[in-house]
């Protein structure tokens, strides 16, 4: 310890303090400040760029998911549309089938009705004609039968026979 105290030189202490403070001042002003400033701004730039990249990436991802969603929605919509179109088509076909059938039925019905009425008319007419023909025949036969009294008698007995037979 004593050796240390003996070695201590006030002059050296003075010069070291003075020179170090001058060096500190000069370096601070001309070296550390500009260097640290440049380094800091560089680091900030890099950080900003990195942040930006992350941000851009996130945005890209967002856009991508948005796009995907859009595509999905479109697909769903398309499917829906196709389905609807199919349904409409089917319905149309069905409807027209139904209508056609109805029409056909109607036509058939009408035809049937007119046939019936025609038939009825024809039958009626035929009946009339048959009646008149029968009448004529009967008249003629009567005339024939009744032309002689034998014949009238035979007929009358035959008729009577028929009636009794029935």
């Amino acid at each position: 310890m004593e050796k240390l105290i003996n070695e201590f030189s006030i002059g050296m202490f003075f010069w070291q303090t003075l020179l170090f403070l001058v060096l500190l001042f000069l370096l601070r002003k001309f070296a550390w400040k500009p260097i640290l400033k440049a380094v800091n701004s560089r680091e900030e730039n890099i950080q900003d760029a990195l942040d930006m990249a992350v941000k851009t990436k996130a945005e890209m991802k967002k856009l991508q998911t948005q796009n995907e969603n859009l595509v999905k929605e479109a697909r769903v919509e398309r499917d829906q549309m196709i389905k609807e179109a199919k349904e409409t088509g089917n319905k149309l076909v069905e409807d027209s089938k139904k209508k056609a059938k109805e029409e056909a039925d109607k036509i058939i019905e009408n035809a049937r009705a007119s046939i019936n009425s025609e038939k009825n008319a024809a039958i009626a007419e035929l009946k009339g004609q048959v009646a008149s023909v029968a009448l004529e025949i009967a008249e003629k036969m009567l005339r024939e039968e009744l032309s002689s009294s034998d014949k009238q008698k035979t007929l009358a007995s035959k008729l009577a026979e028929d009636i009794s037979l029935n």
Binding site: I10, G11, M12, W15, Q16, L19, L23, L26, L27, I35
Partner: peptide
């Protein structure tokens, strides 16, 4: 003793070297 001794002289020299080194680096 406030002499510019060998050590003081070298502190000045080293200080100058340091200053120039970092001044040019800056």
């Amino acid at each position: 003793d406030f002499s510019i001794t060998k050590n003081v002289f070298l502190i000045i020299v080293i200080g100058l070297i340091l200053f120039l080194m970092f001044f040019f680096a800056a």
